[in-house]
Design a protein around this nucleic acid. Structure first.
Lengths: 111, 111
DNA sequence: CTTGTTAATCGTATATTTGCGATGAACTAT
DNA sequence: ATAGTTCATCGCAAATATACGATTAACAAG
């Protein structure tokens, strides 16, 4: 892709928010997170039974969530147990909470 | 793209969350939202001065944010004034707040 | 009507995402 | 050692996203 000559510099916050947002920008990943968070399941196999998608696709989405830090995996041969990464989950909570804080949007009204 | 035979059915919530998340999944869109929210600017032209990207690219990102509902535009010829869509902003706030609520992640721990 | 300003849209090139089946890796059980 | 189970990774195809320059649209000012 042709990129802008003077590449835009983003803050760590901006990159971080965008990265987490991208992780939850697909409905199946939101569903997976909800399932993990509600403890309705934990092993990959249970997810593949509940969600009508190929195993490889589920695995791919799990990898995306792992990379985002929102979940963690514990190898438990031959299974893998996935869980919410509590610390990062709380970080995401405060990050989005801060971003969407009412004060920001209501400081001034153009209309 | 080859799609799964029995397409996954998502809830309105899941689709909605994913849609908003996708809107803020690019750092430049986060920056635009922060600029609009902090009222450092409002017209498209001001954004194109601050952000080193082609006018057409900024316009494209603004359209994405418009489509998400997070911002609104008021035509003010020959300019267009963009602002945070307060109502949808607050909706997003509660949506993400609810999703990342601590209880969900901490109900149970696999580790 | 012509000119200038502002912003959207079009067309294009490239990068990334998404989904699948097939295969491979890691480990258990026999 | 062999077979079975579970999950990750590879390779591919198709869709989407990203960025740009060029053009168009809408309007004001003269």
């Amino acid at each position: 892709m042709r990129r802008t000559l003077s590449a835009v510099e983003y803050s760590g916050d901006e990159e971080g928010m965008a990265s987490i947002a991208k992780a939850i920008s697909h409905p199946v990943r939101i569903r997976i997170l909800k399932l993990l968070a509600s403890q309705q399941c934990c092993f990959t196999g249970e997810l593949t039974e509940i969600i009508p998608m190929a195993q490889s696709t589920i695995s791919q989405h799990l990898k995306a969530l792992l990379d985002s830090g929102l979940i963690q995996g514990e190898i438990n041969p031959p299974k893998v147990r996935y869980c919410i990464h509590r610390e990062n989950w709380l970080k995401a909570h405060s990050m989005f909470g801060g971003f969407f804080h009412a004060d920001l949007a209501c400081r001034y009204d153009c209309h």
